[in-house]
Nucleic acid binder design. Structure first.
Lengths: 206, 206
DNA sequence: TGTACATCAGTGAACGCGCGTTCACTGATGTAC
DNA sequence: TGTACATCAGTGAACGCGCGTTCACTGATGTAC
């Protein structure tokens, strides 16, 4: 770490990743160009290739970083609910990383570093879901629980980022997510998928 | 409708929209180029501008078509569950439309035709959710129910399309979606978000 | 039934632009002796 | 402490490519009379 301003940048790799995150938040991952990144980092247009080879190399690095940041964010949640909230919060605050991670066509999703990082973040989700007791009519077991939880937070986060949610949703994604995630564990539907009156709950005695 | 092969294409507008859907499924909406579409439709490269002006004009038309197709698909579901399954099925089968619809930065999302079409498809979802009785601990009322249902199907569909789901999920999106959506109405969580034993359900007598 | 004219759909040549990639280079840094 | 050399990071000119856009055009279709 030199911090020098001279011929050598000092930490160009990091600077390019940061610039990429900003650029992606502005115009999406597909519009990303290495020349633009070089401009943002104040470096010649051919410099990025030194560190990442090409665009997919850069996005691969960004995805790895993203999966690790996600795993760390999830670990801050002390319950399944709060872990879901943390997932949404991550998607909103690290929007660029989040977008790239779920676009495997944009990077080398089968690169070993990616596979390892993805596995680490999934393990965190899985371990939290494993504590959940089986629900009524729960076909699919713990895997089904994990899939449902993942789906609901991923969907909410995606819709939030797309600006697709109605105004009444408010402007605090964490709070809104909490309300939604609670729903995953509190209503009922019959075997045909039709709504039925709720069974009595410990908190709402008849 | 002439069907002629001569100077006039006959139904170029439709042909371009169809070509766009194919191109988007191959490489995503951002990579779309009007020249490529013209090539696919067997027409000169300047022809698309006649019908759509520019790329965002074309994507606007595609989004409108998408919202209408979605509303029609949802109407085939005769229960809230099956409506959710239809949502997922739509996302998988009309992948290009689905992707574009939720990228408002790519098209003119505030164009009146878009606003109207979006409103139509939302009304279908809303009306189905309105029948649902309030669940236990259900903060947010019917709007919360709608948001939770929308989130879980949207998330599942997005993860499916991204190829992010584990292999055990199988290869029938409708069946897998059904299992996940059932979860939204069948488990419980306490006020702190921690898992609690399920209350007795009408279908699983103690 | 025929003619004249307006309108519309699609053409093709031309332009300027930003991009990725290549390549010989130069400046800075670290290491061996 | 000094010198020589290898390695690495970043440069800048050059190239070819596909793109969007413009514009004068031409072929086909529909309508008025």
């Amino acid at each position: 770490m030199t911090g020098a301003r001279g011929y050598h940048h000092g930490d160009l790799r990091r600077a390019l990743l940061a610039a990429a995150a900003v650029a992606i938040e502005e115009s999406g991952p597909a519009a990303l160009s290495l020349r633009d990144l070089a401009r943002r980092a104040g470096v010649s247009h051919a410099a990025p290739a030194h560190h990442f080879g090409d665009k997919s190399g850069l996005l691969t690095a960004l995805a790895v970083e993203g999966f690790d940041l996600l795993a760390a964010a999830l670990r801050t949640g002390d319950s399944l609910l709060e872990m879901g909230v943390a997932y949404v919060d991550f998607a909103v605050r690290r929007r660029a990383h989040f977008e790239v991670m779920y676009r495997p066509d944009l990077y080398r999703a089968d690169a070993p570093e990616v596979v390892a990082a993805r596995k680490r973040s999934r393990a965190v989700l899985r371990s939290a879901v494993a504590d959940l007791p089986p629900g009524p009519g729960a076909v699919g077991g713990a895997a089904g629980d994990a899939l449902a939880a993942w789906s609901i937070v991923h969907g909410f986060a995606t819709l939030w980022n797309a600006g697709a949610l109605p105004d009444e949703t408010g402007d605090d994604p964490r709070e809104a997510a909490r309300v939604v995630i609670r729903r995953l564990f509190g209503a009922r539907v019959d075997a045909q998928g039709r709504a039925v009156p709720p069974a009595r709950s410990p908190r709402t005695p008849a």
